[in-house]
Simulated assay, not measured.
Amino acid sequence: MLLQQSQDLFKNVMGNYPTGVTILTTINSIGKPVGLTVNSFASVSLNPQLILWSIDHKADSLESFTKGNYFAVHMLAGDQQELCNTFARKKIDRFKECHWTISENNLPIIEDVFAVLQCKKFKCIEAGDHTILVGEVIDIEVKDKEPALYHRRQFGPIPSEFYSVTQK
């Protein structure tokens, strides 16, 4: 019971920590696009440009990401909650629900997001019930859109009052 209370407290604390929202995509071993919603994303290094994210060992796409050499990080825009929800669902063809293309790096790229980082896998690190994937950024695309914010299980654009404070 103590472990469950600790896990619930941990989820509550982490749910109160604002993060961005991303969708990670790759191509599986039979050439099909796979992807999932992820908020465990962070920058690691400027030189070389490295990022990290983590994937649950129970995720259907675990092997596609850990065995593959490339993946794309899509940073969602504040108006893309439905896209976020689509890639968080299980047992559906997520790519039928959005517009996407294949990049020069043979990665599925979802259109009209805030930013896309195409990455070459740098390292995988086992950590508890997740695997941390570190990627070296090989391509960056940014659109003139507002990024998404996830806080207290809510998704939306970064509040405009934040911009007025930071731009003074």
Rank of each mutant, 00 (worst) to 15 (best):
P18N: 00
C124H: 00
G15T: 10
A88K: 06
K121L: 11
L36G: 02
H57C: 14
W100I: 05
G15L: 12
G35M: 02
R94A: 13
S61F: 09
T22S: 15
Q81L: 13
F122Q: 11
G20L: 08
D56G: 11
R89F: 03
L36S: 02
E82Y: 11
I125S: 01
K96Y: 10
E63R: 12
N28Q: 08
L62R: 01
C84P: 03
F10N: 14
L117G: 00
H74I: 02
V113M: 04
Q81M: 14
C84W: 07
L50N: 00
N28T: 09
N39K: 02
R89E: 14
V38R: 06
D60P: 05
K11Q: 11
W100D: 07
L24W: 03
M14S: 07
Q49F: 10
G35I: 04
L76D: 01
K120Q: 01
R94G: 09
V21T: 05
I109T: 06
E104P: 01
T101Y: 09
N105Y: 12
F87V: 05
K123C: 06
C119W: 01
I23L: 04
V21K: 00
K67I: 04
I27G: 06
I125P: 05
G20I: 05
G15E: 13
E104H: 07
H99A: 15
T101P: 04
N28D: 15
M75L: 15
E97F: 12
N85S: 13
Q49V: 10
D93M: 07
Q118Y: 02
C84V: 03
L36Y: 06
A42I: 14
L46M: 14
I92M: 01
D79K: 09
Q49C: 11
L52F: 10
L46V: 14
L62H: 01
G68N: 07
S29E: 14
F71P: 09
K96W: 10
I102V: 11
D60T: 11
E104A: 13
F41I: 05
C119A: 03
E97Y: 13
F10H: 15
V44A: 03
S29C: 07
E111Y: 09
E126K: 09
F114D: 08
K67F: 00
H99I: 15
F65A: 04
A72D: 05
E82K: 13
T37N: 04
T22G: 11
K120D: 02
F10E: 14
T66H: 12
N16P: 11
A59D: 00
Q80G: 08
Y17L: 15
V113K: 07
K90Q: 06
E82P: 09
N106L: 05
T66S: 09
L117Q: 00
T37G: 05
D93S: 11
G68Q: 02
S43R: 06
K67R: 13
F95S: 01
G31R: 10
F122W: 15
E82M: 11
N85A: 12
V44C: 01
D56N: 15
T22N: 15
K123M: 14
L83W: 10
I110T: 06
I92L: 07
T37W: 03
A59W: 01
I109N: 10
S61Y: 11
F114Y: 13
D56I: 09
S54Q: 04
A88G: 08
I23M: 10
C124L: 05
A42E: 13
